[in-house]
Amino acid sequence: MPFFLVLLAVAAGLFNPPASVTCPESGFYPGWDQSGNVQRFVPETLFNHINGGAELFNEFGFRELTLQRYARKDTEIALEVYEMDRPESALGVYLMKSGRETKQTGIPARHSGGLYQLMIVHSRYYIQIHNFSGDSAAVQVMKELAVRLIHSIPVDPGVDLLERLPRENRVPGSQWIFRGPYGLQPVFTLGDGDILSQKGEYYGVTGDYEKEGELYTRIVVFYPNESTAYSAFQYLSDNLDPFLTVLESGPDFMVFQDYESLYGRVHTKNSTLDIVVRLKEKTDPPIGR
């Protein structure tokens, strides 16, 4: 999808109310019934459900969580459906939550999980199914619940955001999406707060690369135009983390050394910020200028 269409879709999403999903009814699997009423959480109340973790969801454009428990005798499973504003956001949350993916058979969407939990991304929904007791008999029930839910959700266009990271030398499975400081935090610290001026709108992608035994990380943020990208570069330059020492800089680039004596380079070109960090050598940075 062209990037301007992505931006238009983001803007449109802001004005659409959440479309609550319908959870599978009692009896979706023999002997399993809904337990308690459906609960719904919006951005302002999400911290009541995941205290300490709501910020990440909200940063990614969280709209509504639907929570429904199911039980058979003493065994209970819980379905959590997080509606995000865009498929890119749902995938972003999924990639952050899933770690190394463990596949199950028969689930028609990208997923990871095992005995205790299934994590699924489908369209603009991030889905978690919990099996709190670890009862192995509930695994098939979790799958059936997932399949029914997935089939009830309309399919959105696929996400090609990750493909905008250069493929050459990329470490498979290391790609990651972020939309602000909480998502960027596990990758690298460039400064406080919204240091890349993403404003909760602009996506960034990151991945690890390996070239001639050297492992480094690339971070690319996509802005709507060159001037916004340049402003973001300026803000980053002015507010760079104090643990990073600038060695060289110009109107559209800077080179720094980090707290581990590794090197990094920031470059703005077209409508992106292209950042490479954890380089062993200062010279010959692996980004084109």
Binding site: I50, K97, S98, G113, Y116, Q117, N131
Partner: peptide, 12 residues
């Protein structure tokens, strides 16, 4: 080791 401080069975 991941997903905390809330519970995440995939990482216990």
């Amino acid at each position: 080791y991941e997903g905390g401080p809330g519970p995440n069975a995939n990482f216990t």
